[in-house]
């Protein structure tokens, strides 16, 4: 069984991002990068599946981006991925173009399962997985918080929705996107990181894949959002209720 795990390099979620004064993008000097948290969860789940099944499962991490991406792909290798593939591309991407490239990778690698994050925490789109499933005409199960095999090629998935926890069963091959509660991703150990430094990362050009990633969404401008309310500190519950009633008039 082959599992493909798309992994995106995103700015660390520990610090807030700063927007360049001209609005052309984020200030990325001295910014720490990580594997998109939802993708780390997807990778962890793929590794779980491999561990539970014993042999015969191959986990491949795929990133689409420039050479800087290799550091996150090495972390994926250190966490336990069998292979890491980078589709070399230095231009702008959107979920549509990501789905196009992933579709080409799927045709080439023929995985049984694509496990990926529900959302990249930089663009916050929450689209690429669903688009990939649509392009491939595959089953999809988004926002997974539990994945179980009910048969060798059928998964039962608990999905986190606005209305509660939904359960669906999908046959493989399928695209499954992960939510935060699915698992707690492991850390890559230092020795594993050292070893991963020497492992190869397969690099493919998008031309070899036969796709030209053409985004349909163009970001024209970014603006920093600052909500700085001047907080009125109140002394006690009585003052708070009084102000909510007579000053803010919300109750």
């Amino acid at each position: 069984m082959k599992i493909l795990v798309p992994t995106k390099r995103v700015p660390s979620t520990d610090e807030g991002v700063r927007i360049r004064p001209d609005g052309s993008g984020i200030e990325d000097v001295a910014l720490a990068f990580i594997i998109n948290p939802f993708d780390a969860i997807a990778l962890e789940e793929a590794l779980h599946i491999r561990e539970r099944r014993g042999s015969g499962v191959e986990v491949t991490a795929v990133g689409i981006g420039n050479a800087a991406f290799e550091s996150e792909l090495r972390i994926a290798l250190a966490m336990g991925a069998d292979r890491a593939v980078r589709v070399d591309f230095d231009g702008a991407l959107d979920p549509w173009s990501v789905a196009q490239v992933l579709g080409a990778i799927v045709r080439r690698e023929k995985p049984d399962l694509v496990l990926m994050g529900k959302q990249a925490v930089d663009d916050d789109s929450n689209q690429a997985g669903q688009m990939l499933a649509g392009l491939l005409d595959w089953p999809q199960a988004t926002f997974a918080s539990k994945i179980e095999f009910v048969e060798p090629a059928r998964l039962s998935i608990a999905r986190e929705t606005d209305r509660g926890l939904e359960t669906v069963i999908v046959g493989l091959p399928a695209v499954v996107t992960t939510d935060l509660r699915l698992n707690e991703p492991r850390y890559a150990s230092l020795p594993a990181l050292m070893k991963a430094k020497k492992r190869p990362i397969e690099t493919i050009s998008h031309r070899d894949l036969g796709v030209l990633p053409e985004p349909k969404v163009r970001i024209l401008h970014l603006e920093q959002v600052a909500v700085d309310r001047v907080c009125v500190r109140v002394a006690d519950a009585a003052e708070l209720v009084h102000r909510l009633r007579y000053e803010a008039k919300v109750i």
Binding site: P95, N126, Q127, G129, Q130, M131, L135, E160, D162, K216
Partner: peptide
């Protein structure tokens, strides 16, 4: 923009080769 639309519309948009913006 709810989980209902987030689940379904990107798939529909890919089927239509349509551009999509969420939220």
């Amino acid at each position: 923009s709810t989980t209902f639309a987030k689940d379904i519309l990107p798939r529909a948009s890919a089927m239509l080769s349509a551009a999509m913006a969420g939220d």
